[in-house]
Nucleic acid binder design. Structure first.
Lengths: 195, 195
DNA sequence: CGTCTATTTGAATGTACTCAAAAGCGGTGG
DNA sequence: CCACCGCTTTTGAGTACATTCAAATAGACG
């Protein structure tokens, strides 16, 4: 079993993962190695995989009517990432996922996801909690983006995800925060002065 | 069985609900009638109930450091509403829920939620889909709020939720959209002119 | 009717945006 | 190894949208 994955699961379910369950799940996932700047999913296709990052960095985004990209999620080692809209609904993907660095990742197909949920009770539980947490985190993000100014949002972001700041280009962080790269640059400039 | 609830469940799971399951679930929920402008949950308490609205209207919000309220969700008949952060994590509520009209609602306690998930498979499935959908909708909201201007967001909102426009005070809709009531008033004024 | 709350309107301000250009940085090929 | 190219970040100036502060109007409710 992948140590990183095991830790992630045990942390999420708040308990130990048995050897049996571990082995059963292992049969359902596969490993994949990908270059940087490669699209894991394409807009318009159906996304029927979820990914767990063992190494590297990736992000998901949506393109608006004017062709601008808007970042939804970043992922580093030990993060799950997918277009859950497409994955769950079976409809065409509206989000895209792209690698930022060369990645080693685990792939769980929708088919195997459903097998896991059905045949390994602890995984049914695991995925429910995973999405519950994601939901809650997202709600918090909405609340913040409606209440705080960009500067505060950036400060919070950099406190909460210091690793992101170091490995992810600034223009993508700006997009995640809902501002333009120029604006983020100015915010950073002001912060440095003040410190 | 409550007709509204039955429809909601069947629509969500995409199939019929058996009499047995229906009856089993019915035992786990209770009905409650509440006046308007009453808090269903209080910040700081633990929220261990989810609500299904049979009648009336309610909304959830979070208060920021300056005491401003920021709306997260509206609910009318046939909507589920709760502070899922607190409900799932068991930690103190950071959101509050308040009624806008006199409400008749169904209450599912956390205890009974877990019983339902454990003993009625279809409800395990139902709640998973419910939160999946909520997650996906939220993600879309984030993408929109980062990409579109307030005017467009309001237009989309009023198309998607025409009932909300009619029954929910404007200052709360403004808050949901992440703008001030004055700004929404001006946006509406411009729209009228243009039509 | 009077009070309280919500909405509208005006004027001044501020934050983030656009457009434009320069500087910085990394990778590639000569 | 350095020159060049493309991409990212920074900086400047002017603009646009939403905010703040303030006050007037409109609605709801007892």
């Amino acid at each position: 079993m992948y140590e990183l994955l095991k830790k992630n699961i045990e942390k999420t379910i708040g308990g130990a993962l048995s050897e049996t369950d571990s082995a059963a799940f292992l049969k359902l996932i596969s490993e994949r190695t990908i270059d940087k700047k490669v699209a894991l999913t394409e807009e318009g296709n159906i996304c029927n995989e979820v990914y767990f990052l063992l190494e590297g960095a990736a992000f998901s985004f949506i393109a608006d009517s004017k062709g601008n990209k808007h970042v939804l999620q970043f992922a580093l080692e030990s993060f799950w990432i997918s277009d859950l809209y497409s994955f769950f609904s079976g409809r065409k993907a509206i989000y895209m996922i792209e690698t930022l660095e060369p990645c080693k990742l685990l792939v769980l197909s929708k088919e195997n996801f459903e097998i896991a949920c059905r045949t390994i009770p602890v995984f049914n539980c695991f995925f429910r909690i995973l999405i519950q947490n994601a939901y809650v985190a997202q709600q918090y993000r909405i609340a913040k983006s409606n209440s705080e100014e960009a500067e505060l949002r950036y400060e919070e972001f950099s406190k909460q995800y210091p690793h992101f700041i170091q490995r992810i280009p600034q223009y993508l962080i700006a997009s995640y925060l809902g501002i333009k790269p120029q604006s983020l640059s100015r915010i950073r400039k002001n912060n440095v002065k003040r410190v």
